[in-house]
């Protein structure tokens, strides 16, 4: 564990707490993509299957359980509890276009051609693009509640913090994880437009609005 990875994980943790806080306090999941949340459930379940056979640390164990549990809870809240506030007509990104290519990539790029390793690769690739339905929805509506933008910023910053972590680990441990690195850089890249608007507008106290 190093400082960058800890910051990344805490940012990831914060993003989920902000998301649940938004849903609970506004009693609404308006502005949130159900598809993106469903993809995160798939990401966490396929990646954290190793909970059942690999012990890393208590920290790792608790965080994995939290990410699986909270993503399922979010999906439940969106699907049942606050269902009427979710508008499927603007959440129209075709997730087949994400899941299919990620599955193919995972079959080609993996560290071992085994079920668990291919699923791990799949989860890494899928995570890198899972935000697209949400960003697509944001693009369509052209604006977002401030709390939703804080959620997205924390979620985007999380993977960005992993990049210095990988550089650090390369020099201190000699460990290189090319699949995670390439996907992580791509994932962070997808947020660049969002970050620009977030830091130039929301951080200055303005509302998040995209130019028409």
């Amino acid at each position: 564990m190093n400082f960058f990875r800890l910051l990344g994980d805490l940012s990831h943790l914060a993003s989920i707490l902000i998301l649940l806080h938004k849903i609970k306090t506004t009693r609404s999941c308006r502005g949130l993509s159900f598809k993106t949340q469903a993809l995160y459930v798939a990401v966490f379940i396929t990646r954290y299957l190793d909970l059942t056979y690999r012990w890393v640390s208590l920290y790792n164990f608790v965080m994995k359980l939290f990410f699986i549990g909270s993503s399922c809870a979010t999906l439940y809240l969106m699907r049942y509890k606050y269902c009427p506030t979710h508008d499927p007509s603007i959440d129209t990104f075709k997730i087949e276009y994400l899941v299919g290519p990620c599955a193919i990539l995972a079959l080609i790029f993996n560290y071992k051609f085994s079920v668990s390793e291919v699923l791990w690769s799949f989860s890494i690739f899928l995570e890198s693009v899972a935000i697209l339905p949400q960003l697509f929805m944001l693009q369509r509506t052209g604006e977002a509640e401030t709390i939703t933008t804080h959620y997205l910023a924390a979620l985007g910053i999380y993977r960005a913090f992993y990049i210095p972590n990988w550089i650090y680990r390369y020099f201190t441990e000699g460990v290189v994880d090319p699949i995670a690195i390439v996907a992580g850089i791509a994932q962070t890249g997808l947020y660049l437009d969002f970050f620009y608007v977030y830091f130039t507008k929301v951080m200055q106290g303005e509302k998040f609005e995209l130019p028409a």
Binding site: R5, D9, H12, D50, R54, V56, S57, N60, M63, K64, F67, Y111, K112, W120, Y162, N165, V175, V176, D177, P178, I179, A180
Partner: peptide
């Protein structure tokens, strides 16, 4: 495998 990846990250 070529890479000694630890899978110890989240």
């Amino acid at each position: 495998s070529r890479f000694q990846v630890k899978h110890d990250e989240l």
